[in-house]
């Protein structure tokens, strides 16, 4: 019997989506750039641990005022900043904040927003009204303003910045998930599960959420871009990561007073932010196309 059981390789919908995504060159370039950032972030963390932060202290935050604002050269390819620190190294050390904080913040709001949206869409009526009206209140406040208010009230710390950004993104995800749950919950396969006696929790977990994941993934990849911008924005306003820790937003903010003396110290962090956001947006667009089953090819 085992010889005749030549089972076909599993070709799930996710596999198909990946195959389609691979064909999209722009999206793959975005993915590659993001992969590079992840590698950079992890290697700098490893260096910090291995050298007990001495490399970080000596090269990333140690000031050398005699060489301040020096332009790009062979030794310092991105030049030196207003305190004579190597911009290239500071850019590398800053990757972790933008990337991981953006991802963690969005992961938190995806989970919370996703659950709230699923509950609202699935149960409908009163539950839906209570949850979604609360989301509307959150949505009515501009997300940057909300994040600023939260950080200003709770004080500037990494966790507070994270919380602030996560909270301000919850409504977007709740709405996305609710919308797809509403379209899925009236389909016959949900009724079939009910007829089998499946519990609400099982129906949400095994039937509704897996089928509403596609728009959520797209929304999340675009959300990370927004969150990175928000972190940079908060840092730019002095509410995010505090100096001397390198962070793209605060580097940009500190550099702007010296824009006439050294163009490179504003342009480079700005480019870093821009390229990362671009990569995420391009990837998000690619994912949206790849996950749309109507575009089978």
């Amino acid at each position: 019997m085992s010889t005749t059981r030549t089972q076909r390789k599993q070709r799930s919908l996710w596999f198909e989506a990946w195959r389609r995504l691979k064909k999209n060159k722009l999206a793959m370039a975005g993915l590659l750039f993001l992969a590079l950032l992840v590698v950079i972030a992890i290697s700098t963390i490893i260096i910090d641990i291995a050298t007990n932060k001495s490399y970080y202290n000596d090269h990333v935050i140690k000031q050398n005022l005699r060489l301040r604002l020096q332009g790009p050269s062979k030794d310092h390819i991105f030049g030196l900043d207003e305190f004579g620190r190597d911009i290239f190294l500071r850019m590398l050390w800053a990757v972790r904040y933008s990337l991981f904080m953006g991802t963690i913040a969005i992961a938190m709001s995806t989970i919370v927003g996703g659950i709230l949206g699923a509950i609202a869409g699935f149960y409908g009526k009163r539950t839906d009204n209570i949850i979604m009206r609360f989301m509307d209140i959150l949505l009515a406040i501009p997300s940057m303003l909300l994040a600023t208010a939260i950080v200003a009230a709770l004080g500037t710390s990494l966790t507070n910045v994270l919380m602030a950004i996560a909270i301000s993104y919850i409504p977007t995800f709740a709405r996305t998930v609710r919308a797809s749950v509403l379209t899925i919950k009236d389909q016959e396969f949900i009724e079939a599960a009910r007829a089998l006696g499946a519990s609400d929790l099982r129906i949400i977990g095994k039937y509704i959420l897996p089928n509403s994941l596609a728009p959520l993934i797209v929304q999340a990849s675009l959300g990370v871009a927004g969150a990175i911008l928000s972190i940079a924005g908060l840092s730019f306003l002095g509410l995010g990561i505090q100096p001397p820790t390198p962070e793209w937003g605060s580097m940009l903010s500190n550099a702007r007073s010296y824009i006439r003396d050294g163009w490179h110290i504003t342009v480079i962090p700005g480019l870093g932010i821009m390229l990362t956001i671009l990569a995420l947006n391009v990837l998000g667009d690619g994912l949206r196309d790849a996950l749309d089953p109507r575009l089978k090819n």
Partner: peptide, 24 residues
């Protein structure tokens, strides 16, 4: 009711909509 559902079942009209697309 759940115990009873073992004895009473339903076959649906649209075989495209009545199966979970994420399950083999």
């Amino acid at each position: 009711m759940k115990a009873l559902r073992r004895d009473m079942q339903i076959i649906f009209q649209d075989p495209f909509a009545s199966l979970n697309p994420r399950m083999t």
